[in-house]
Design a binder for these strands. Structure first.
Length: 837
RNA sequence: GCGAGAGUGGCGAAACGGCAGACGCACCAGACUUAGGAUCUGGCGGGGCAACCCGUGGGGGUUCAAGUCCCCCCUCUCGCACCA
């Protein structure tokens, strides 16, 4: 390695020590000052930070530092999303206890983050695996239980064999585990759910208020929640009581097309429907139907990729049409989703494509009841799915679809056979995990009293340290005698403690509240005054991969806490920046591809400032960033040049003279001064608008180029030169300090500024922005022909007169008649011409 | 299939409807050097000796003026995907 261009290593160490001893970034709520809460998604302590973290945190730090200089009281915390599977895997593989593994990872990663010079208030650091944090997970869980928002049910669940745990729907991608990528299978289990669907409507409605969120993320959440308005309609099984069993069977279907009700020719239910057993028992088709169900469920675990062909089986049962009383066959269909709507659909082959395909295959009748309003489409091969006018629908015939939906629903309501209903694609959040390294769910199963919540006073339910990791299946908690076997809090008889732990997404659903208002060891999770001062998060920054999971759960949790009177806001994140990925050779960095760039090496080679500057400069924050080893050197050279030129300045003028240049500037000096102040405007605008960090840095590079050119001039009078260059470099360093804080601090010191990061953000001198002359663009028929330099206030006539002196303009106007001139003051003159006749 | 976003030099990228390619990388030439893979200076979309001409995925349109606005098409990325 060649000699460094500047001693970044010494500089960065010294400056970081200074920040540390000054406690430079500690914050307290202060109602006399405007606040700004800048937050980056906290990392999972996997062991080392990667370039994605570097990018995420460089962006956040630039914003935090900028806002501080703009006079805001800035909260900028950092912590650790410390529960999770890898810790357990490490324990199994290498015999290290998850707690130990996690702690040492945190220590190492914290050091890495500090080496980057990120301006965090480390006093607020939290790790979700510490009892002082997760006790509140348990406390919230008990509150949710009280409110009926947490419940236990038996359900067919996504099970990942390799992680040996269940997964929430959001955590299954393409039928595979979001974490390890192995195939997810379905399994019936009893587990805890949070009633996020109770908040579906609010979460949906809240999206429209999130103007500071990328459209993309809002759309993804909207698609995930997917509200759909329709009707729930009852079809009674015929005969209503099957055989000698007393329970009457009524099946409910959900439909958005109540207007097609008279076109129903069959009803289809999901193979896993809970009433299936009851229906099939004793049916002449029982055997066939059961075979079909078994086959279907088996297939479902494998395929998952492609849409399978529609298949079904007759149940041998009939249902009654709610309005006509007609008998209709009840089928089982592989295409009916059990967990959506009611798990039963009415089959209208004439007006629904899926029903149509199903009817074709099994020879079920097709009955048209909607006439298209426009021209009829080619009938026969497809269903007519558009709205239209009803016919053959008793008294509803002649109505348009929309009216008919309301009217038919009303009719059903009056007969108590239906009602309007809103359904969501979103399903309740399954939070039980059959793992050790997570928050114990604070309930006790008592054979006499049932499910008993752990009394609040007994919290936290501590994770026992002394557990054995077998490496195969199940949580070690189940085999821990003193943990799992406890007296029932109510009857004191022997009971079994819940050994499942919580999904770690619970941990990250409220950490931003804890940062802002954490209590040391209190009876409540937050100090309310602190929360109401700091919340909401003004700027949240993280990867788009959390667009649904973490961001939806956090919104849900915040609303629940709001309703519990614990959160001052309903929406936690005011503006959201989803940063792009860091790519290398056109692909995401990964060990398997061997294209990872190690932040530690980079920092050792170029220094933290260079690494930060490059990641911010090379692409806009929300776009993917292609890593280029060579391009990093550009940022490095820039800082090296800056260092060299400030040194040259100090050699030329060891004593600072005067604060600003006198009034008599040479033309070159005036141009430079105007460049300096234009840069202030540009950088400020770029940062204020859309965090355009890349163009802000480009402006700073331009300023250094301009300063360098001026510095190289000889013959400029020293009384102008010295203060002007000083002003220029100080401005540059101040504007640079959010991006490359160490070198800015150091060179600022050399120029006599103690802590440059505490200065107020520079304000442009309006006088320096006033231009003596500007270059007018001269177009002929919209094509550039010349530029002329005149005072900005010049009139159209002035500009045209001057333009006509230009030989290119003269040539272009030869033999032409000027029809009109378009004049943009201070900018442009476009002469519209036509050949003279 | 539905939804969202994106297509600009060799590359990363800039451009309130007003000079396309700022800034950086790579490359080329020169300077300083025993040397340079260090540094500094200059050049750098394509064609043409030049005047000029052509250029922002393709095709239309609006406008004095279009990368930018409108319509159609193509390609790519991401998300959802039998949701009744």
């Amino acid at each position: 390695m060649s000699d460094p261009l500047y001693p970044f290593d010494d500089i960065e160490k010294t400056v970081q020590n200074r920040w540390k001893s000054d406690k430079a970034f500690s914050t307290k709520a202060d109602r006399t000052r405007p606040k700004y809460y800048c937050l980056e998604m906290f990392p999972y302590p996997s062991g080392r930070i990667h370039m994605g973290h570097v990018r995420n945190y460089s962006i956040g730090d630039a914003i935090a530092r900028y806002k501080r200089m703009r006079g805001y009281n800035v909260l900028h915390p950092m912590g650790w999303d410390a529960f999770g599977l890898p810790a357990e895997n490490a324990a199994i593989l290498r015999g290290i206890h998850p707690a130990e593994w996690t702690e040492s990872n945190i220590a190492h990663m914290k050091e890495q983050l500090q080496r980057l010079g990120l301006s965090y208030d480390w006093d607020r650091e939290v790790a979700t695996c510490s009892p002082s944090y997760y006790r509140w997970n348990q406390w919230f869980f008990l509150k949710l239980l009280e409110k009926g928002l947490a419940y236990r049910k038996e359900a067919l669940l996504n099970w990942c064999d390799s992680c040996a745990t269940v997964l929430a729907n959001e955590q299954v991608e393409d039928g595979q585990c979001w974490r390890c990528g192995s195939q997810v299978i379905l399994r019936t289990m009893n587990q805890w759910f949070l009633r996020i669907t109770d908040y579906a409507r609010d979460l949906m409605a809240g999206l429209s208020s999130l103007e500071g969120w990328p459209e993309r993320v809002r759309t993804m959440q909207a698609n995930w929640i997917s509200p759909s308005t329709g009707a729930e309609i009852t079809f009674e099984v015929d005969p209503l009581t099957l055989d000698e069993r007393a329970a009457p069977l009524r099946l409910k279907v959900f439909t958005t097309r109540a207007d097609t009700l008279f076109g129903v020719t069959f009803v289809t239910m999901a193979p896993e429907h809970p009433d299936m057993d009851l229906l099939l028992a004793g049916s002449p088709q029982e055997k066939k139907a059961r075979n079909f169900i078994e086959e279907t469920l088996k297939k479902r675990t494998k395929e998952s990729r492609e849409e399978p062909e529609k298949e079904g089986a007759f149940t041998g049962r009939m249902v009654r049409h709610p309005l006509t009383g007609e008998k209709i066959p009840l089928w089982i269909g592989n295409f009916v989703v059990a967990s959506y709507g009611t798990g039963v659909v009415m089959g209208v082959p004439a007006h629904d494509q899926r029903d149509f395909e199903f009817a074709q295959k099994y020879g079920l009748p097709v009955k048209k009841v909607i006439a298209p309003n426009g021209e009829a489409q080619g009938a026969g091969v497809q269903a007519m799915t558009e709205d239209g006018t009803l016919f053959d629908s008793e008294r509803f015939s002649g109505m348009d679809s929309e009216t008919a939906r309301t009217e038919i629903t009303k009719e059903l309501e009056s007969r108590k056979l239906g009602q309007s209903r809103e359904t969501f694609r979103l399903r309740d959040w399954g939070i039980s995990r059959q793992r050790y390294w997570g928050t114990p769910i604070p309930v006790i199963h008592c054979p006499h009293c049932g499910i008993v919540p752990v009394p609040e006073g007994d919290l936290p339910v501590l994770l026992p340290r002394d557990v054995h990791f077998s490496g195969k299946g199940g949580s070690p908690l189940g085999e821990h005698p003193s943990f799992s076997s406890v007296p029932c809090p109510v009857c004191k008889r022997t009971a079994r403690r819940e050994t499942d732990t919580m999904d770690t997404f619970i941990d990250s659903s409220w950490y931003f509240l804890r940062f802002a208002g954490g209590t040391p060891e209190g009876a409540a999770p937050f100090v309310p005054e602190d929360l109401s001062y700091w919340l909401p998060v003004d700027q949240y920054i993280g990867g788009v991969e959390h667009a649904i999971l973490h961001l939806l759960y956090s919104r849900f949790f915040t609303r629940v806490l709001y309703d519990l009177g614990l959160s001052p806001v309903q929406e936690p994140f005011n503006t959201l920046l989803t940063q792009g990925m860091v790519l290398k050779d056109g692909a995401k960095m990964s060990k398997s591809k061997g294209n990872v760039v190690d932040p530690d090496h980079l920092i050792a080679q170029y220094g933290a400032d260079t690494v930060r500057l490059f990641t911010l400069f090379s692409a806009p924050p929300d776009k993917d960033l292609s890593w280029d080893d060579k391009a990093v050197e550009g940022a490095y050279r820039f800082l090296g040049r800056l260092y060299g030129r400030v040194n040259a300045l100090l050699e030329e003028f060891p004593q600072a003279t005067g604060d600003s240049p006198g009034t008599e500037l040479t033309p070159d000096a005036a141009a430079l001064r105007s460049k300096i102040h234009e840069t202030i405007v540009r950088v400020t605008t770029d940062l204020d608008s859309h965090a355009q960090l890349n163009t802000a840095i480009a402006a700073l590079m331009e300023l250094l180029n301009a300063l360098g050119s001026y510095q190289a001039l000889s013959g400029e009078p020293a009384p102008v030169r010295a203060p002007l260059l000083r002003e220029g470099y100080l401005t540059l360093l101040t504007l640079l300090s959010p991006f490359a804080p160490h070198i800015a601090h150091h060179l600022g010191e050399r120029l006599g500024i103690d802590r440059i990061e505490t200065l107020s953000w520079p304000v442009a001198d309006p006088k320096a922005l006033v231009k003596e002359t500007v270059a007018f663009v001269i177009q002929i028929n919209g094509k550039l022909r010349a530029t002329v330099t005149l005072p900005p206030g010049s009139s159209q006539d002035d500009v045209e007169r001057e333009a006509r002196k230009d030989e290119k303009v003269v040539r272009a106007l030869e033999g032409q008649t000027v029809m009109k001139g378009i004049f943009v003051p201070g900018k442009l003159l476009n002469l519209v011409v036509r050949p003279s006749s």
